[in-house]
Design a binder for these strands. Sequence first.
RNA 1: GGUUGUGUAGCUCAAUUGGAUAGAGCAUCUGACUACGAAUCAGAAGGUUUAAGGUUCGACUCCUUACACGACCA
Length: 523
Amino acid sequence: MSGFNVVKGFLNLEIADSEWLAVFEQLRAQPATAPVAAGGPRRVVVEYSSPNTNKPLHLGHLRNNFLGYSVAEILKATGATVSKVNLVNDRGIHICKSMIAYQRFGHGETPASAGLKGDHLAGKYYVLFEKHYREEIKQLEAEGVAADIAKKQAPLMAEAQQMLQAWEAGDPAVKALWSQMNGWVYEGFDETYKNIGVDFDKFYYESGTYLLGKERVAEGLATGVFFKKENGSVWVDLQAEGLDEKLLLRADGTSVYITQDLGTAELKYQDFGYDSSIYVIADEQNYHMQVLQAALKKLGKPYAEAIHHLSYGMVDLPSGKMKSREGTVVDADELVRDVVAAAKAATLEKGKTEGLSEAELEELYHMLGLGALKYFLLKVDPKKRMLFNPEESVSLEGHTGPFIQYSHARIAAIRRKAAELGIAETADWSSITQLEATERELVQELARYPAVVGEAARNLSPAVVAQYAYDLAKAYNRFYAEVSIFQETDAARRSLRVALSARVGEQIKASLGLLGMQVPERM
RNA sequence: GGUUGUGUAGCUCAAUUGGAUAGAGCAUCUGACUACGAAUCAGAAGGUUUAAGGUUCGACUCCUUACACGACCA
């Protein structure tokens, strides 16, 4: 301690610079990626992405995927064992709609013959279904049929309903088409997942869990925690929990979303024995998730308490909410192409990438474009609804991913030069008693890292890490502008500045890594 | 109608979970590249934190009511 003062009832203690140097030494004893102790749940399952197989991924899925992946990485960084799982919604009326339209209008088209990714092909037929279905409704209404009846009577919808029943009955032809189209979709999803840098330890399929869910419903009926209405439908009464009566199984015995959720929760528990099961699902499902947890509690399942809904806000466009019917959905693949193209244009304009091969350049554009997009979607508190501004999302300046990546590239250049000049990143700094303000701030910023990761893990909020990475890069840029590294004549101080740079670079890399972002050596 | 979330600068977001003069970016204006990378840095301007009460040494944060927007359940 080197001094103190009192301001407005606060006692301020001043920590001596020698202490800050000691703090820095201590930090350097551990690699930047070393796990931080945070004492949260140890075995965690993070379920995210969870797409429907009737159309390609869109902007909303991107927020979901980036959040899920990042939360998993953050929890790993606190020493937890984390499993990432994807529950694919591969059955239901929506799939049948694509299938019916394909049967009718597809003429045997395949992704290869159409030159389309499989998920986009399925999406094309889903759109076609909706289009013709709407026309049929209009037609019926023109004939004097009431709107709600027209919706049910339209031939296309009737066909789709029939197909769903045939599917549940195991009709071989329907199953074959279903397998074929879903197979195409999975190939498409796989490509997108690779492209956006997310992955999963295990996939679950609703078609493989809904029967188990039905068993649980039967179990609840048997033990009397669920009840049957006169028409044969099964319900759970959650009025005591402040909820409502909730349908668990339709009168015709077909399952609803929550039916299979009951099964999937159990399968995940069998597979991973989790202390915490995180569901990354948009906040429009808040009620649904409460019902799921309450129903599992009624069944007396030990894992009911472990369920945690990471409820995130929807992504709005400047024009308002995304609506597939109005064609305002932002396609994920297209968006990624756009941000990568923008990063490429900016990089070419800067012209600082000499010596990189064509392949390295492509990798760089991808790293920067995707970095901009991920950072844009992750810097906002997950629980808040957010606005997606296309222009801002491809921006590479200011509070953006590439701003932080740039700091890393700059540091990489410093390290290359230091190596060239033979300046060691480790040395005896005992001669240094006074730090420059920007040096001190940098050490303070570096030292916050474990607390930041801990907070991000507690709050399941990548935004905390995103903000930190930005603050660290910002502090470094100030330092960089303020002091000279290679013009410094004092050898100890020169090596300290190189060491500070190196450590900042490593912590930027570690922090962005928690967000699923990579860092370039030059850009 | 019921439940619930959000409301901070022109715009997009922060605020160490109740602490000091509410901070960044974008946009606007000014300055800094023949010193290590200007995708940067320094500065100016921009705020009655939706409104009104309350709790206390202290409130963007907690409580009550109202308003606005969204989501869900009927």
